[in-house]
Every structure is written in structure tokens, then in C-alpha cells.
Design a protein around this nucleic acid. Sequence first.
RNA 1: GAGGGCUUAGCUCAGUUGGUUUAGAGCGCUUGCUUGACAGGCAAGAGGUCGGCAGUUCAAAUCUGCCAGUCCUCACCA
Length: 887
Amino acid sequence: MTELAAKYSAQSVEDKWYAYWLKNKFFHSEPNEKEPYTIVIPPPNVTGILHMGHVLNNTLNDVLIRKARMDGKNACWVPGTDHASIATESKVVAKLKAQGISKEDIGREEFLRHAWEWKEEHGGIILQQLRRLGCSCDWDRTRFTMEPALSEAVINTFVYFYRKGWIYKGVRMVNWDPEALTAVSDDEVIHRDTKSHFYHLKYYISDGNGNPTDDYLVIATTRPETIMADAAICVNPKDERHFHLHGKKVLIPLINREIPVIEDDYVEMDFGTGCLKVTPAHDVHDYEIGLRHNLPVLEIIDDHGKLNEKAQILVGEDRFVARKKITKMLEESGNLLKVEEYISPVGYSERTDAVIEPKLSAQWFLKMDKLASMALETVESGRTKFIPEKYVNTYRHWMENARDWCISRQLWWGQRIPAYYLPDGSFVVAPSAEEALKEAQAKNPSIKAEDLRQDEDVLDTWFSSWLWPISVFDPQMPGHPDHTPNKDLQYYYPTSDLVTGPDIIFFWVARMIMAGEEFMGREPFSNVYFTGIVRDKIGRKMSKTLGNSPNPLDLIDTYGADAVRIGMLLCSSAGNDIFYDEAQIKQGAAFCNKIWNSYRLVKGFTVAEDAVQTPAAREAVDWFTAKLSATVALVEDHYSKFRISDALMTIYKLFWDDYCSWYLEAIKPAFVDGKALPMDKATYDATLDFFEALLKLIHPVMPFITEELWQDIVPRKDGETIMYAPSPKAGEFSAKTLDDFAFAAETVNGVRGVRNQRNIGPKVQLKLQVKAASLPFCNIVGKIANADIEPVPEFTSTTGVGFMVRTTEMFVVLDAAGVNVEEEIAKAEKDLEYQKKFLQGVRSKLSNERFVANAPAAVIENERKKEADSLSKIESLEAKLKQLKNN
RNA sequence: GAGGGCUUAGCUCAGUUGGUUUAGAGCGCUUGCUUGACAGGCAAGAGGUCGGCAGUUCAAAUCUGCCAGUCCUCACCA
């Protein structure tokens, strides 16, 4: 780099260094004698594309991994993707549909061939995009949840839990998505208040022979199309209004089927009419009532949400069409008493937005009780820490109320359940068809391979991703707790930190903890850092439909990856939602430019062997040495507590304010005859050392620009990188040095204030009298404030502007013309008034006996110092006023 | 309905077991600077009775209770 442009342009720099890092395999990790630092990526959907949430999450991951690397640890970040069965399958189905193909037509094998094709074509784009962001993943370790080895792990896990007796097949009410034709978990159902109607229907009481009497009861329902499936009418046993109904039978309207009136506490007396129609096949609660009362279950809605022949009427109609039609029929038959407008919560499928149909279905379940209590202990004991801690509450609530996990999905894209049915309807569970056959033959020796039929369903995607921290290292481990972990697993497990969103605490985090405890006997990670959700400026979730989500790659093109990274992180504290604003990225870009230009300045310095270090430069080097140490210590503290944005802001200010605005200004050589004087070598070397330390500090967040400049400070050999440069360490430093400098800086600010107030340009040299024996860092003050510093016992001039730094009086000497006495008096009076009030406050505290008796000595001491300082200020203000008024 | 979180400057947030906090930062805003690295810059400045009320304490942004607003999770009332 010979010429440096006045503006930093990221494009030319980023691709170059990423290629260099890859070429040198800097991201790759193998077990060695060093301490491991491990992160497994939250695997994005294989068909996903990068959005702002990924940017936030992966930048955080990369910051942690790069920091660990520079701290001397063996850092390993394992990347990969998730097969995401529902999301991927629905994309493939949509693609085939566009070609006029339905998945049922082509069958399982053919469909899967299309799906794999799609995966090869579109899959893993997101991993390429992560490279643009600068993520230092160990790409040689890239995994996919449905690659053969990991699928095998999933199957083994299933067999393991089945043999343990924790997996069972059960008929359960599931949330059926009639569009995706699959059961979805409770967690994938979104309840939304929806406008509907409350239909009040008359059910005539039967005379006992299936004929209606004149007497009737009224039920209120939102789903009149399900009356044909009614199994009973239920009333509260305490409800006096319905005592006369006990033991009676009523007739279902239109079809006149007789059903009993039963009594159950479940029915609220003051809701609706107090009479509930019980439809066990199509409502969760009704199903449970049905179980209690041994009611028959009659399913009248098919998988597509259409009425079947058991409904007797409206057969083949869609449930919503049927609702309209039956309303009319009920009206005509005189059974419809009234219709009310009604808003009720309705469940929608997260994927297809179809209204969920409660449906009885044979599903596979994994018992949660033991796993959940184990996983709760992991977090409550602190073996895994949550950041922020508040999510422990959420976690506990879930773990204590965990229901058995429905692990089967009616999909094809995923690991197929290894259950094989015999012709007699019984089944065996085995890791392969061959073993299944053996087991089946043990039951019945005449069974042949072609007699066995494998379960059609696949496993929930989370049933593979919960193994992720184990299976990425050793896929043989899950399902085989007796297996000796391979070298990788032994070395990298448990992983160090996990960065993810709080929305998947239960889906993923909790289940990984369960699997970790079950198969490894310990937690899968030490810390879980929860990010917030990235929202737009006005707080809306980012979504495709709203179009409020910027494309991260466009942002990277415009501002550079470093700018995007630091822009996202500066405003994101753990667990809080991020309100994204492009202004933050611009701030990041401005910071890149600032770093770039500070380097241009430093690079432009010339050095002369015989040049002598100026006193200001000497002071500046001493001060910045201390400042750097103090800041490194602070940054380390922030990192250790996962206060990432605080750590970054601290470095940001160190670079911009302390290094650029103070340090560089203090050492900048003077100009003589339009040329900068050369600098002494000691200052120059120190300046470069500081710059390098700053680059290293900020490198984890801004990897590209720091590599670019680090490579230029001195010529580096091929294979050298800032990535492995050791993090700056905090040395000893004197707090007094820092405090003295702060005092000096306040002095400079005071002079600047006078300049501003009086409109005196920075090039006008001023004279500053200081009522003290000496002024710390007076050469820096003199240089930056452009003033002659004169320590004096008493001010010698009567014209000028005074100010105070803490308790020291200072005076900028001006000629009379530059001074507005009235203004000075007004200002002094205002200060005086404030000080007197302040003193009063302090004194009332000190005169409070109970305060003096109870407060710790240090606090009292501090109050006394405040009192003394205030008194001294009042004294000098009064003197000043007197003098001003006398003139 | 049950549980939990949040509420501090115009915006986004710190404030680390109550006491150097006379409440801070970044951005934004106002004013002045074409200062030999940077106008993506430099300097100065304005902005808050810490959501409200009550309590505990010598001392409350910080602890407790109630209220209001807001968000999330779980369950969903036929």
C-alpha cells in the first residue's frame, strides 16, 4: 500500500483477505494441547437466505470466536445447515406444483430425489453469504443434519429411546394442518383472535324412542358443521337450570341421532348457555371429556378438512363451506335460535396459515418427564448459564410443564421413523431394515422382507438438531452412551458458548441440554447468550410481507462487512430486541473511515534519528500507555460478562476520542514552512505500537480493515495474520496518571469554552493563568489548547475570563475589549447560587445524626470532601464577584 | 385466564448485589469552524422531577406493594 485514499473503501479489501484466510486455513481447528473454545452454529435452514437476524447472531458468534483465538485458545466454530423438514418440503412441493406435479403422484422416492436436487441447487447459499460477513467458521467441518452420518445418529437415538421405553405410539389429539397434511406441534400453532359467530342451536329432547318432544335445550357453538359428530351434551352437575335434563337424551338436529346428556365440572355455568355439545373427535377438551365419560369418537372431517360420509349430510364439502350451508339448513329446520357476532381465538398453522383442525391421530411420542427434570437441573445448578438471566424463569416454567414431545411428522423430507409393521399390525423398531427383519422373524419366523412396511412418517426436525453439539463431532455417540467418544468429541465437548434467539429456548436449547445430559452425562455448553429479535425502526418484526427487511448483502456492498458488523452490535445488549436503523450501519462505516484516516496520518509521519522527543509527546506516550491498559482491563471485564456492546463502545471511544482526538493531536509535529517537522523515533514507535494494539482490540468485530492495516504497519510474511496476534494485555497503570490527564483535559475544555464563547479562533494563542503550583500534563494542555500556561499564586490580570476546574481557578487573559463584565458577573452569580444550594444539601446530610452514625466511613468522608470543595468554590466565586464588581 | 419481562435525554440503551451519580453513553439536535488524516471531520452546547403513587432505609433509578402502559411465553373457554 503506497498511496492511501482519503476514504476507506471496503470492497477491494474484504474479498482479498477472506481469500487469504481461507488459503491459509486459519479457520481450521484440530484438537491439540491448547484450551479449546468451541461454538456450534445454530444451523440455519438449508434453503434459507441471510437476513438481519442471522447477521446479528453470526456476528456475535464470530466476535466471540475471533476473540478466543486471539486469547490463545484453540477456537473452533462448526458451521452447518438444518434440513428443516417442513420449510424445505413445502418449498419443494410449491416448486413441483408450479410444474403441475403433486407429491402424491410421483411418490416418496421420486419426491425425495427432487428434494435432494433442490437442496444441492439452493442449499447452503446461506453459508456462502456468511463468508461475506467475515465469519471465521471451520468450513472443513461443515455439517448437514440430514447427511448420512447424522441421520444415522437420529435413527440410533430413536431406537435407543424406544428400547428404553420412553418412546411410545399413542392416539392423541394433534393439531392438524389440512393444507400441509401434517400434524404440527403445539408450538407451531399461532392463536389469533378471529371474528366468527356464536350459533345458538336448539336440540330437542328425545322421548326415549328417538322422537322429538316439544322440549329443547340450547347450546352455543362456533362450529355448527361438527354437530353430526356430537357424542353428548354436557352440563355442569351443579347447574340448577339443567337439573331436569339429567339422564335425558337429545336429538342432533338435521340427522336426529340420539345422544345423552351428561354432567361434568368442565362446563362453565355462566358461559354460553351452560350446555356444551361434546364432539370428541374434533375438539381437544371434548376429547378429554369423552375419555372420562367413555363416549364414542366419531370423525366426520377428513385430512383435507372436508366432511366425510360419516357426517351423513354435506359429504365432501369443505369445513367452512359446510358451516355456511348447515347454518342455512338449521335455520330452515327451525333449530337456529340466533347468531351472535363473536371474536374467539383460532389456531393457525405457522407454516401455511391454515386454520388448525384438532384431529385424532396416531403419533409417536417421547416422554419428557425425566429429560425435562434433568435439563432443568443443568440450568438451575448453573452448569449452563443463561445470559441474560431472566430467561431462566421462562425455561423453568417450560421444563416444569413439559408435555410429551410429539416427534412424528407426516412429511417425507426428514429421517424416516425406523418402525416396521408386520402384516398383523404389530411393529418392531430397529436401526435398519435388515435388523428389523430379524426382530420380526423372532416374532414370526415366516415373515419375509417384503412383508414389512416401514412407518410413513419422518421425525421432527428438532429431533435431529437436538443432537447437534454432539453429532457434529461424533455422530456415533447419540444413541450409544457406552460408545467411547472420538478424539474430537472428547476435546471440543462441552462447547463453550451458544448464541441464539430466545424464541427457540424450548425447541432447541432445552432439548440440546436434554440430549447432552442423556448421552454425554453433562451440559452441551457453558453459556447461552440470547440475542433479541431484529425489528425495524418502528418496532415491527422484519418480514418479507412487510418488505421492511433490508438485504444484508446490499448493506455489505454499500458499507462494508465491518461497518455492518459493528453497526449491528453497538446497539444490541443481550436479550433485548434490536431496533434496526441504517443510521447505525452508517456510524459503523464512519468509524471505518476514522480508523483509516488515523492510519493515513500516522503513516505520513516522518522520523529523524536526531529528532528530540517533545515534552508534549513524552506526556502523551505516558498517559496513553496507562489509558490503554486501563481500557483493556475494562474491555475484558465487559467481555467476561457478555456485555458485548459495552465492550465495543469502550474500544470505539478509546480509538476515536482518546487516540485520535487527544493522543494524536498531542504528538502531531508542528508545521514549519508548510512542512511537518520529523518526529523522534521513540514517539513514532510508541504511536505505531498503540495503533497496532487498537487494531487487535477491535479486530474481532472488524476483521477486514484491521487485517488490511495490520498487514501494512510493517511488511508481514505470507501466513502471518492479525487473527492470531495475541490480544493486548492490560499492564500496571497508575490511576493518578489517568486522573491527572482528566484534569488536564478539563482544563483544555475550559479554554475551548472561552474560545467558543468569545469567538476566538483556534489559531489565536492565548495566555492561561492557573492558580496552582503546577498543572499536570501542562505541555499537552499548552499544545492542544494553544495557550501559554502560567502557574501563578494570584492572577496578575484583571481583564479576561475565569473558569474553574474542580477546585482550581483558571484565568484566560484577554484585553479589556474581549471581556463582557456583565456576562461574567451573571455567570458567576449563577454558579454561586448553585454551589450554595449544593452545599446546603450536603450539610443537611452531614448534620443528620443518623446518617453520620449509620453510613460507612468512606461515604461520610466523601460527603465531607464535597463540603470542603464546595466551600472552596464558593469562596473563590465570591472573591471573583467582588473583583468583577469593583472594576 | 396463568406466568414473566420491560418502562432512565428526541431515538437506542448503560447504570454490575442501595452510598464519588450533583444520573451517563452513542446517535440525533443547536451553534461555530473549507484548522495540512478524516465535513463519513473538528470544537462547544442544549436535552431527564429515572412511568405514577405509597412504603422500607440515615440514604432509592436501584428494595417492597399497588396502579398504568408495553412486550413476550403458556393455555385458551364451547
